[in-house]
Design a protein around this nucleic acid. Structure first.
Lengths: 405, 405
DNA sequence: CTGTAGACTTGGAACGTTCTAATTTTCTGG
DNA sequence: CCAGAAAATTAGAACGTTCCAAGTCTACAG
């Protein structure tokens, strides 16, 4: 006689049990069950059975678990070979006979087998996952960079995953930890602002190759692929000087990033070479986005001696500056010169089209990816690559207008 | 006597062996070794030893492998508890005594332990990884969506990874397979064009919740979070009609996507309601990017009876149209009306500022993420959510200019 | 028939966790 | 000092792969 039967489980499993293993009074009776069974399911659907009838409980457990994933062993059984052989087939080894290979492949298709990468990772450290940690996905520049990186990894048989650190070192640490737990084969990181020098310590210890893109981290043990920020800043400033500008501002970006130091460093160098004193009031820092650009412009335009030209930390800041000029009734390219940095896709579509320092995001991304691949394959030298930059002269600097005149 | 000793290994490991296990002639002698040893290391640093002296080889192998990662068992040994206890500590279970917990934590810090998620995944299906598959990361709209999604998952303790399918179904399949192998807990997919209805079959079988964002896939078993495209298209068209336009084009996007069908459907509906015949020449399809927009504009402007207004498939297409108008010496907002779709961040900064249908990307993303979370936690109902849309009137449609006049 | 080389195949031990069921320790009230 | 409950701990079996070492075939020469 059934004394009591307590269910604590999701509706789905109840159905699953009822249907699949036909748990009902009759069946319990058939098993000669007398007593209490309690089946409870943790959220992950693993059954816990407490009761007196071992056989029944085992049965129930088995039934509840029956809906498990198809494994390599199932394939082996189905194809009539050993699991080792199936494993070899999966690795497209040349050791298995063509005929066997096909039989196994057929079984795989038939049973809908899914390779379990976790299990593989557990056994062999190598994985085919590479990570990309981007500090600001909303900035199209980084999106372009990510696309370049992806292309390389994709063709090399690695699967790239992107994570966004949102310029937050704490979150970046979280993401890096997670990637490490996941067992990434390699990493490309555009480090967020304020990344501590030991951020990659753990990864280094595990021997995971790390390549820094776009930004350096002082003291970090990692390769880096970085555009020639200083030369870019210098070239852009020299161009503005050659157009006759003498009061040139440098807007946007935070002073504690390397990119800012280098880009504004080039700007200083050019000014000094032209015997112009650098006016600290003309260097305005701020968030490297549109709002930051607009705000920074406001700040320099409020000065008694306003600039006639600005070099922006990046294109997005420059877009903000262009908006700001429009609001003020000024026209970039004639009344005022604006130069950006990065040459994102939108730069040529801005109005006026943005003169900017092209850093070849796609090329840098590919370079970074190649470096990671080389490091994965054993070349341990953490090299430092500097990407070439060049000035793309469009309309916002006024050079075209002057030429035409 | 030592006959020969061949090394084929990375410099790092040689140091490791020399230092760690003191491999030298004396030691070999002590082991009474006579013969040849060859130790070679595969790139993953697994030692392969070939030689005569089993004992020594075993020793060497052990030594070479000694630099293995710190495991939970090492922690247990160090803290003087069982591995089960350590596991419980890692899961911050309330079952362990505070004192023990602290001792274990200390050991973890001291030994620099790294949680191995692969091993955990192997044992329990649950993982804290969620995936986001985006069809076009270069489109700022999807980047914004991704950011909204990320926020929710982050606070819920899940780690979101983004993968780009680049509007390529084959690549999307690749990415989905990889995510499945990785054991994701849930997925948000912006399906690429041409996604087959059974693209999520395998994921469904594994019980991985899938939420489609922005686009439907006919016949797919998945929840979806989609903006009210039709209403948006209709509202925008009605707005243009109310401004007196009678020849309104619909530009960009591919006919085989649901978004296109719905958005252009709303456009048709509005026209029909106003008793205007839909002129098929005014519906031009093309890639949903700037270039596509510019090209599509070129096509309708080459007609004998050119339109006076366009509704664009999305904002990026609209940007292309704005560029195209500028090239033609036309001015959006006065000579011509342009309306976009999505309301990306850049829309208000376009010149003229873009009138567009706002779909609240952040909100949609959050909604999608919430749905995935609910499904992960057992609520199996695949719901279909329709996001509200509203028209944001700026300058490109000419309404503001008319009001001012 | 034997030996052996080569081509395939395979059993079984890892890998580092989690989970269950059980055991041990501690606490409580008599 | 004991029984029983509660709290804390733990042994050991999974999980699904890979890799090594050791097979079993087949073919062919002697």
């Amino acid at each position: 006689m059934i004394a009591s039967l307590t269910w604590r489980c999701s509706a789905e499993l109840r159905v699953g049990l009822d249907a699949d293993c036909g748990l009902d009074a009759k069946r319990l009776w058939r098993y000669g069950f007398i007593g209490t069974i309690q089946i409870s399911l943790s959220p992950q659907r693993r059954p816990i059975a407490i009761g007196q009838d071992r056989t029944l409980i085992a049965e129930l457990k088995d039934a509840a678990t029956r809906r498990r994933r198809v494994t390599l062993i199932d394939i082996a059984r189905h194809a009539g070979v050993s699991k080792s052989t199936v494993s070899l087939v999966l690795q497209s080894s040349s050791l298995v006979k063509e005929e066997t290979r096909q039989r196994v492949r057929r079984s795989i298709d038939e049973l809908g087998y899914v390779y379990n990468r976790s299990a593989a990772n557990l056994r062999q450290a190598r994985s085919n996952m590479v990570g990309m940690v981007i500090n600001d996905l909303a900035n199209p520049f980084f999106a372009e960079l990510a696309v370049g990186i992806e292309r390389v990894f994709q063709t090399a048989g690695y699967v790239p995953f992107i994570a966004n650190s949102a310029e937050n070192p704490w979150r970046q640490a979280e993401v890096l930890r997670s990637l490490r737990e996941q067992g990434v084969a390699g990493l490309i990181v555009c480090p967020s602002r304020g990344t501590p020098r030991d951020a990659f310590k753990d990864l280094n210890r595990d021997g995971v190759p790390v390549v820094l893109a776009m930004r350096r981290v002082l003291g970090a043990k990692a390769a880096s692929v970085i555009p020639d920020n200083q030369r870019g800043g210098r070239k852009a400033t020299e161009h503005l000087l050659s157009l006759g500008h003498r009061r040139i501002a440098f807007l946007g970006g935070y002073r504690d990033t390397f990119a800012h130091a280098e880009r504004s460093g080039g700007y200083r160098l050019a000014l000094e070479a032209a015997n112009i004193d650098v006016d600290p009031e003309l260097i305005v820092v701020g968030p490297p986005n549109r709002e930051g650009g607009e705000a920074a412009l406001g700040e320099v335009m409020a000065l008694s001696d306003t600039p006639t030209a600005v070099l922006c930390f990046n294109d997005v800041v420059a877009f903000g500056v262009l908006s700001g000029l429009k609001v003020r009734g000024l026209s970039a390219g004639s009344d005022f010169a604006v130069v950006g940095f990065d040459d994102v896709a939108d730069a040529r579509y801005a109005s006026p089209a943005l003169t900017t320092v092209a850093v070849d995001s796609g090329g840098l991304g590919e370079r970074a990816a190649q470096t990671v691949l080389r490091m994965i394959h054993g070349d341990a030298r953490p090299e430092e690559a500097i990407g070439d930059v060049h000035l793309v002269i469009r309309e916002s600097c006024g050079a075209k207008a002057r030429e035409a005149a």
